[in-house]
Amino acid sequence: MSILVTPETKILVQGITGEFGGRHAKLSLDYGTKVVAGVTPGKGGQFFEHGAHKVPIFNTVAEAAKATGATVSAVFVPPPFAADAILEGVDAGLVLVIAITEGIPIRDMVRVKRAMQGKKTRLIGPNCPGIVTPGTGEKSTGGCRIGIAPGYIHKKGHVGIVSRSGTLTYEAVWQVTCKGLGQTTCVGIGGDPVNGTSHLDVIKMFNDDPETKGIIMIGEIGGNAEVEAARWIKEHCKKPVAGFIAGATAPAGRRMGHAGAIVGGAEDTAAAKIAVFKECGIEVAATPSDMADALLRVAAAKKVNLA
């Protein structure tokens, strides 16, 4: 199994006719992902064509979901309209909305998060690389790729990866793949201060997933989401967990690229988070080159075979 999405999951892409959304919709189709619909208001009735694929475009998410059975949306809509696009997916009763868009105003996300309370839809992101559940084909094709991650670096296997950063996720994925191991699902939860799914939410899913035998959790400065997850791991998770926190050298009070990567006080520094990781039995990678090795160390100590 995997978490959140499987190779059978049907996807719709909001913003499929945009340059960014279109490019990544094609890459997902190439990967073997079931992209069954696109949504662009005003372009309903047209088709998004790529090779042998002819993906119908709808004016609204509700129509697209009803006509195609899509349950998951990837949002590639520009920042001023992205919050509204997320809410449209929620209103259509989708299971999962994955917001790739970077630069959504925080106030918009505060309202979205409030509006989603009590709704069945889960949000991942925004400002995230998305999700990949690798497939069994060549270069992991045949899997479910939603978002902007490079598919070919993955390999089907037993490691779960959760991270706030895009390229740092790819770094971890590639290290795991180069060790001959693979991933169940890789989840980028995004670098914004207000996001839909936390480290802890994903960790709980990995913990419940029988296929996932080890976990890599990647965090950064700002907020306390990694600390919350680490404390839960200490109490409830028996699986080997390796961790990495970026931003040890970041100056306080400066926003380091991600809107959420900012040191506000003594509690959300890299040093403070690393200390909590260690205290909670998470094997800390000394450098970002050490993430897969750190997982192998803790797996060996717990006598868990990750292969």
Partner: peptide, 10 residues
């Protein structure tokens, strides 16, 4: 990438 940029400094 922001995360990779931060960890490169680190």
């Amino acid at each position: 990438g922001a995360g990779l940029a931060m960890s490169t400094m680190d």
